[in-house]
Computed example of a mutant assay.
Amino acid sequence: MIKKLFAKCCRTILLIVCKLVTGVQARWYSPPCDAVTIYYANHTSHLDGLVIWSSFPKKLRKLVHPVVAKDYWEKNSLKKFIAIEVFNSVLINRHTNTHENPLQPLIATLEKQQSLILFPEGTRGNGEQIVDFKSGLYHLAKQFPHIHFVPVYLNNLNRVLPKGSKLVVPIICSAIFGSAISPLHENESKADFLLRAKQALKDLI
């Protein structure tokens, strides 16, 4: 009980700090809904998931889970507590062996009718360009053809918390939520789908 209460307090504090530091302005092309959705975004800062998550109406936050790297967020007990208890993140192993499916935690979450925040570039970029997507987004689209895939473009987050820096610089940021892309087309190749998904994100710039 105490642990849950402490997590709730941390969540509230982090949301307030996030809004103060980034002044995040969320813009939605389509109103947010409770349909199962994968929100996929460009990745330039450790604040990215928090900014997207904080942009949702309060009632949706319990249904949306940031996808984070297990090797980073399990480095110490504080990071693990923030990832799991505060934001109810889905942790994935980026260094699995051939007998493990790294997408299994994501699949399990989607099967529970919960949504995800995903960064298909796989690693943080420099904020200047969007690099090619990893294949995970395609495999999820193939296995879950009826869920929504919504692109989210994050602007200025790389300047708030630059890669390799621990200094937070208050700058106005924005999160642009586009319309859901059309489902995976019949006979559409992995390369074509990933290119189409990436273009939908670039179109929000």
Results as ranks from 00 to 15, higher is better:
Y72W: 11
D203L: 01
R94I: 01
A41N: 04
C18A: 13
P32S: 04
R124L: 08
C33F: 00
H185R: 13
F133A: 03
N42V: 02
M1D: 11
K112R: 15
Q143H: 11
I176W: 01
N97S: 15
P183W: 05
K4T: 08
H146F: 07
T12I: 10
N93H: 13
S54R: 00
K59L: 04
P120E: 11
P170Y: 05
L140K: 13
I92V: 15
L5C: 06
H46I: 09
A69L: 00
V131N: 11
Y40E: 05
V131W: 11
S115H: 08
W28S: 13
N97V: 00
Q129T: 14
I38A: 01
R124G: 09
L60M: 06
E121V: 02
I171E: 07
V24Q: 05
G136F: 08
N126F: 02
L20K: 13
H185Q: 13
V86P: 03
I147C: 09
Q114T: 08
A26L: 01
Y138P: 13
F119W: 04
P57I: 03
I130L: 14
K59C: 02
I147N: 03
T96F: 01
T98D: 15
I147R: 11
Y138G: 10
L167E: 08
I84E: 09
G49N: 06
K166I: 07
Y153A: 14
I16H: 11
V68G: 01
V24N: 11
D203S: 13
P170I: 00
